[in-house]
Design a protein around this nucleic acid. Structure first.
Lengths: 204, 204
DNA sequence: ATATAGTGAACGATCGTTCGTTCAAGAGGA
DNA sequence: TCCTCTTGAACGAACGATCGTTCACTATAT
């Protein structure tokens, strides 16, 4: 507690803004051309920053992707909070499915997560970051499922954690399908919900 | 009909074998390091073939991946035939889920399909090849589902095609999970089956 | 003799990263 | 207020490595 987090100076703010600008540019490049097809020069020039300067903010190309994965995690927080809110289980679940499906239906989000996850296979740090992100979501959903069982709304035949994982995988699978096949997500949501309700044994 | 498919000469066979050897080597490289991290030299040397000679057999790196995707399709045929066989729907479905899940649980298969699909996002020819492969499987599963409905074994709340897609997506999602998290697939299969049976409204 | 599988050096491009340099902005003393 | 002095963000040339591909050439089988 030597320096009590001195108020962010104007300089600090500018630096943070530059950093974010670079990350934004990187996301655009990765979306357009993929991670491996994007050069560090592409990122720098799209961000309006010199090549060398990029290395003042990030330790390398890999680091940029890590930071993007961190940003992605932040985007999941609203969904987690939503799942943890008190209220009728079925309503919360329904809203979550709609919301998360809609979020993923934006090609940017699903493509980016494919890009990250395919890189995560071989890069350990990215992999653990990626699975942490997911685990947070799984746990929140799992608690909701348990609550649903207690309240007699759900009738599961398996452990809630597995169910929660499968629910997420199904939503993501649909989103992936919609992007790759060019099928609008909103047309897939009714079928998805019906399928999920059956699977969770929603009492009629 | 000029040359009536003359019997494959010894030479032709040798050539086909070389081709296949190269494809095998490429698969190994792609699995180990990923498509974009693999150089054409890596493939050639792992296949025991000169760099230049590789280009006598394939028009380029992209072409190699295309051919691999074609091979992958052939591996799906047994599953499709199995789905089309007559017999009790439930038994066939159960065997299919086990078999397909087990097939995907080999990291090689799931990683390879991730590699291909992530490349398919931006390469149109690969994309259509990839979705054709999948469509064949979807249709076979869809027919089985319809048969199940007619026979009163399944009680679907949605169109069979969508259901078939979701079943596949779920199996693949589980396989992907098992590879990324290092969870053995055989431990996931019971829960997966229970989930699917609920979802399909299997009569008790 | 002809055709072609096979070879590996060579090509130009691009990769991720490093480096020496410039220069504007704050710190401290007068 | 003015003048150093220090700091580190910003820069782009340069580096060595590697990329996918081509090509002139040899070996071999018909």
């Amino acid at each position: 507690m030597t320096t009590p987090d001195s108020p962010p100076s104007k300089r600090d703010k500018e630096l943070a803004a530059r950093r974010y600008k670079i990350l934004e540019a990187a996301v655009m490049c990765f979306l357009e051309n993929g991670f491996h097809q994007t050069g560090v020069r592409d990122i720098a020039s799209k961000a309006g920053v010199s090549l060398g300067n990029l290395y003042n903010h990030f330790s390398g190309k890999h680091d940029v992707l890590i930071e993007i994965a961190r940003l992605e995690r932040a985007e999941l927080d609203p969904f987690i909070r939503q799942l943890e809110k008190p209220g009728p289980v079925l309503k919360i679940f329904d809203r979550f499915v709609s919301g998360y499906a809609k979020y993923l239906s934006a090609p940017e989000n699903i493509i980016l997560s494919i890009e990250i996850s395919s890189e995560a296979i071989r890069k350990e740090d990215l992999g653990s970051l990626f699975s942490e992100n997911r685990q947070a979501l799984v746990e929140a959903l799992q608690h909701l499922a348990q609550r649903g069982v207690v309240e007699g709304v759900f009738h599961l035949k398996t452990e809630p954690e597995e169910v929660a994982q499968m629910v997420l995988e199904l939503i993501e699978g649909r989103a992936y399908h919609s992007v790759l096949m060019g099928a609008p997500m909103r047309r897939l949501i009714p079928g998805l919900k019906a399928f999920l309700c059956s699977a969770l044994g929603v009492s009629t």
